[in-house]
Each structure stands twice: as structure tokens, then as C-alpha cells.
């Protein structure tokens, strides 16, 4: 009984800490331009992959600025090693021209994240 309480308590602490960390890491970004529904997850990159902030900031992505507002925020730039393409080049991480639907969660994924209609094409 005591042991279980302890474990529960410890789990709760870890989860709270995790949530707090994610929040300080900026959470999920969903880009809408130039195409809708592209996700970048800080949690995946910082916590799961263990990358440090300065690997991207401010060399690839300026803090406080929105990348999608820039004209060169397109796939072609990624292939040339800009933005995500700095790592997603096929050697450090999967290449930018593969596994499209991993980051492109689409309009459907975007709606799901924003709590919209999950299956909007369904009969009812």
C-alpha cells in the first residue's frame, strides 16, 4: 500500500516536471504557410532526442521570429541545408524529401490538434 502510494506520487512528480519542461521548450508549432499543417514538436526534439537549444537557435531559427513568414521557408531551402534541412539531410536525420507525412500532419492533423472535428468527412 505504502509502496504503491510512493510510486504513484513519484510518477505524478515526474509527469508534472515533464509537462513544465515541455512548456518551457515552446511546445508544438504548427506551420500554416506555405502549406497547411506542418508540425514541429519541441518535445520530440529536445526531450526525446536530447538536442540542445543552441543547435537550432538562433542559427537556423531566430527566437521570437516566425519562420513561416520568410519567403525562403520552402522545401527547396531545406534540401539546401537551411532550416530543418540542416539536420534532416539523410545523414543526421531522415532526409527532407522522404517521409513527407511525418512532419506534414496536414489539414486533418491540424484540426485534430486544435480540437476541431476529428473525422470531418465521416457520414455524421
Amino acid at each position: 500500500m505504502t509502496l504503491r502510494t510512493l510510486v504513484t506520487f513519484a510518477t505524478a512528480i515526474i509527469m508534472t516536471a515533464g509537462a513544465a519542461l515541455a512548456a518551457t521548450h515552446g511546445g508544438d508549432i504548427v506551420y500554416e504557410k506555405p502549406v497547411k499543417g506542418v508540425i514541429f514538436s519541441h518535445k520530440t526534439h529536445v526531450e526525446d532526442k536530447g538536442l540542445s537549444c543552441d543547435m537550432c537557435h538562433n542559427r537556423l531559427f531566430e527566437m521570437g521570429k516566425v519562420a513561416q513568414e520568410k519567403a525562403d521557408f520552402v522545401m527547396e531551402s531545406l534540401y539546401q541545408g537551411k532550416y530543418c534541412g540542416a539536420c534532416h539531410n539523410g545523414s543526421m536525420a531522415f532526409a527532407s524529401n522522404t517521409r513527407c507525412a511525418t512532419c506534414h500532419i496536414g489539414v486533418k492533423g491540424q484540426k485534430r490538434l486544435s480540437g476541431g472535428d476529428k473525422h470531418d468527412k465521416k457520414g455524421h
Binding site: 502549406v35 506542418v38 513527407c100 507525412a101 506534414h104 496536414g106 489539414v107 486533418k108 468527412k121 457520414g123
Partner: peptide, 30 residues
């Protein structure tokens, strides 16, 4: 396919697909 749904938007505009539930000529499944 990245489900940006530009095809669906273009189809609706080009072919005057009515804006009602279940009305589409093309869609994307996930």
C-alpha cells in the same frame, strides 16, 4: 501527399462544388 488540401480547394472553386457537408468531388483520406 501532405494533406495540404489545395487540390480540394481548387476543385471546389473550379467546379462550383457547393459548400455543404458531404459535397466534394475529391478528398483526402488519412
Amino acid at each position: 501527399c501532405i494533406d495540404c488540401e489545395r487540390c480540394m480547394e481548387a476543385c471546389v472553386k473550379t467546379n462550383h462544388v457547393p459548400n455543404v457537408h458531404g459535397a466534394y468531388r475529391t478528398t483526402i483520406l488519412e
